[in-house]
Amino acid sequence: MPVSLPPPAPTAAAPAAASPATIAMEGLAVQLAGRPILHGLTCQLHGRAIGLLGPNGAGKTTLIHTLLGFYRPSAGSAHLLGAPIAAGAAARAAIGYMPERDAFIARMTGVQFLRLMGELSGLPPDTALERAHEALFFVGLGEARYRPLESYSSGMKQMAKLAQAVVHGPRLLFLDEPTNGLDPTARRRMIQLIRALRASGETRFLLSSHLLHDVEECCDEILILKDGRIAAQCDLEAERRTHRRFVFVETQGEGAPAFWAALQQRGCVCATAPGNRGKIILPEGLDAAEIFRAAAAHQVQLRRFEYKRDSLEEIFLRAMNSPAAAAGAA
């Protein structure tokens, strides 16, 4: 049972409800070497940018490999953009995959590598060559495209892996730890590229990462796994919208009780705490400036004013410590 985070609602960027889910799983279970790894995962992910989180051994990579058809589910089913993964190779026509580990084809230049990958995805040879150049320029390897892949640095190889995943213009991308082993500059560049992919509105992706900050920057929906079970599924955009309405204030002045009462009259939910501190939940449509107006009207000083929202880290930790997740682990 997932924890009771907000239900997955279509975000602004998400497609209409009638279109197939990006990823849909129904009781998806996987056993490896007789050991259950994924336990009947059921969910519908509609986001354009889905973050896959979980501690080591949670089953993130196994889930990606199963969705790619590398492992056969022991029970249940899954659909990618409406196509069943059981359809095999045909289901992978619109998919791109950036593996976690270093992966390339020996004795090739960057452009030869991407051309081959494009052709294997079904592009005609001439188109594959053209798109290979474009993809390499897109990831910033334009100047290095005629160099052998073996001579690339770790960061360049990581970019080449991203380029091969997008060369055929997939509709769904699987990015497994894309920022692994990158220095801060390269990591920033990778995040920018992933955000550019999201902004293009032409592709959706599932991003698996240990780095919550990366996921928070790139994704609009998250799925958290723990011990092969769904610990949480939440729409990050909706979370952000909800929690942006929390305001923490610290007041000083005799008129504080009247100030709190005035805010309540305006529809705010207020909770005071010792030390003249308080938390205000603003209702829909009420501007934060109202707080300042109320303070001025009641001659109250605002010594502290900060928006507070749950960070992904808090959501993640809450999911990890939730009784449901603990029960799943047990």
Partner: peptide, 29 residues
């Protein structure tokens, strides 16, 4: 699509028949 755009573009042109895909590997070999 010019390379100087440095942008991602989807592909919706014709695709090679699946049975001919291994020929790409063979050509490289």
């Amino acid at each position: 699509m010019p390379i100087f755009e440095h942008a991602y573009h989807p592909y919706d042109g014709p695709l090679t028949a699946p049975r001919r895909l291994p020929l790409a590997i063979a050509r490289r070999g």
